[in-house]
Amino acid sequence: MNILITGLITGSMLALLAIGFSLIFGVARIVNIAHTAFYMIAAYTIYFLSAKLGVSPFWAMLIAVAVVVALGLLAYRFLIDPIREHEAAVLIATIALAMIMQEAMLLIFTGDYLTVSALIQGFFVVGGVKVFHQQVLTFVVVLIILAALWLLLMKTNLGLAIRSTAEDREVANLMGMNESRLAMITMAISVALAGLTGAVIVPLAVVSPFMWMEPLIIMMAVVVLGGLGSIKGSFVAAYILGFTEALVVFLIPKGAFLKGSVALSIMILVLLLRPEGLFGVSFEEER
């Protein structure tokens, strides 16, 4: 039971992170290493607003997402966009960006571990296991976000343009889709997802300036397993990894210490056996 709950929640969180990361990679070929750093910023914003200023947690979450989107767009406009065609430069720039955010949080909030109280208190017992209401809430909210994202991508004109550009940006261009504008919009959606992940996970997690590193690695493993750029792949792979992680933590003695290595082992295995991932498409070479 514990495995199921932890697996579902970890999986959902990973799905949100990995889909956001995949989206911007798919549309603009941007590998945004700072993706999970935005998630950290959201967590800190919520901590600051709710614990220090007494803003209600719900509003704190919304403001946090807005802050992260604003930061993401600024970073895109002034840091990533000018060097967008240099993949390696983008990689380095976003690593630097993540470091800057980490150090900024370290300066402002020090390295202390911080916590945010749960939105709703209490728990119920299923099969002898305590299930906190907050866990259920987080899971439900994640499902709602995923559903909204699915609707946006599959049922709107914007979603059609995003998917078209992700698949073949040259042909999308021929159809009248403005690729650089779409990249900007996708960046906003992508970091909003990172911010939302931070927002829903913060009552269950510890806030620290280094909290972006572990999810970054696991998220990369998810993206590799699911296939780079595939949204469906990210979704499925997130739950696979979420459950694997939960299994390892609960079934192997001292398994918690193996968490990180499990993700990395899966990543290496996938790269060795099936580099394109579960649902990966081998990208057609662009001229």
């Binding site: 059609l160 998917r163 078209s164 698949e167 040259e170 042909v171 021929l174 498409v281």
Partner: peptide, 11 residues
């Protein structure tokens, strides 16, 4: 209408 047709294959 580009060379090699290039439909959006996943759609």
């Amino acid at each position: 209408c580009p060379e090699r047709r290039r439909p959006f294959r996943e759609m």
